[in-house]
Amino acid sequence: MIYVPGLFIALIALWLALSGHGEAFMVGLAVVSVILSILLTMCLGLMGREASPYHRLVPMARYAVWLMGEIVKSNVAVLRTIIEPSARLRPRLAALDADGRSELATALFANSITLTPGTVTIEAARDGLLVHSLHDGADEQDEFAPMAARSLMAADGRG
């Protein structure tokens, strides 16, 4: 139940940002719609930390800025591989450890890996990830260590 207020605020903010109609009738409709959406979410059994992670918005935003930098770097790297005719692929599978993370942190880590071109999460579970990468780096655990630590910090608030 503690996640309901966060979801309520987030959905209302989303509605107002999209709508731009500030008259009382429309705001009333917004409140009714948000309540109905939340009721439907609860009815489907989805209410919880993952449906309403909005209390972690600030650390997530900070993480997103860092992630954008990584995405730009790996975009350039993959673009090079595509354009250079001589470039050779060295695809590799890596099993990463993701023990002791919440479901949210695991999903954030896995999605960050997939979002950066050149690496994609093939399988994700609570205890580990299976990652396919375009180029084999030095050591698989070290290569992803900064992303693992930062995503854990952003989602769970610990390093």
């Binding site: 989805l46 919880g48 993952e50 992670p53 479901e103 695991t106 999903a107 997939t114 399988e123 609570r126």
Partner: peptide
């Protein structure tokens, strides 16, 4: 059972 999909769906 993948947390990626269930988290995305819940969100």
């Amino acid at each position: 059972g993948s947390p990626v999909l269930s988290v995305a769906a819940r969100l």
